[in-house]
């Protein structure tokens, strides 16, 4: 049962991700990506990480993709052909970056030994455990990330503010 759900979700995630790339219509691409995010949230739920799953939905599907959709609608980007055709080199750079990224991630996954599933899973992934971990073990990275986000926010405000 557990495995069947996992493979189902994984299949949806992969099909959604491929659809994101292959759709010509930017609107469909965005919606396919939303489907992928839902499938991934389902995978988190299977690992009993309710908090991560819900936050994943709120942040990615609920905020970021809505903004994407917003931009696609406002600029009426029905077809992305023009951008790609204008510069052929971009395609090769994209392939290079993509393969490099996949290589790094794959190597990283190969090196890490993942913990076995289902170990003391009643407490795993609850807000309490996650909060304690973030504010004890991983305090420095966590705070650095927040500084990074603040810097981005300030940067965006400065860029969009009109000169007076």
């Amino acid at each position: 049962m557990d495995q069947a759900i996992f493979y189902g979700l994984a299949l949806i995630a992969i099909v959604g991700a491929l659809a994101t790339i292959f759709f010509r219509n930017a609107m469909y691409s965005v919606l396919a990506l939303v489907v992928t995010f839902f499938a991934m949230a389902g995978l988190y739920l299977q690992l009993k990480a309710e908090f991560v799953a819900v936050v994943h939905i709120i942040v990615y599907a609920g905020a970021i993709m809505v903004l994407f959709l917003f931009v696609v609608m406002m600029l009426n980007l029905n077809s992305v052909n023009t951008i790609i055709r204008s510069n052929v080199n971009i395609k090769w750079i994209a392939v290079l970056v993509g393969v490099g990224m996949a290589g790094i991630l794959g190597y990283g996954t190969y090196l890490t030994t993942l913990p076995a599933r289902g170990v003391n899973s009643t407490e795993n992934g609850t807000v309490k455990v996650l909060g304690k971990m973030l504010f004890n073990e991983y305090l420095l990275p966590f705070e650095l990330t927040s500084v990074l986000l603040i810097a981005t926010m300030v940067g965006v405000i400065v860029l969009t503010k009109k000169e007076e």
């Binding site: 309710e50 908090f51 599907a61 609920g62 809505v66 807000v127």
Partner: peptide
């Protein structure tokens, strides 16, 4: 009775906009 119930509500709420947008 999920342990992030209130976040679930916000999650669903933030998805509501898709219907209108689409």
């Amino acid at each position: 009775d999920i342990n992030v119930g209130i976040l679930y509500i916000f999650g669903v709420l933030s998805l509501g906009v898709y219907g209108i947008l689409i």
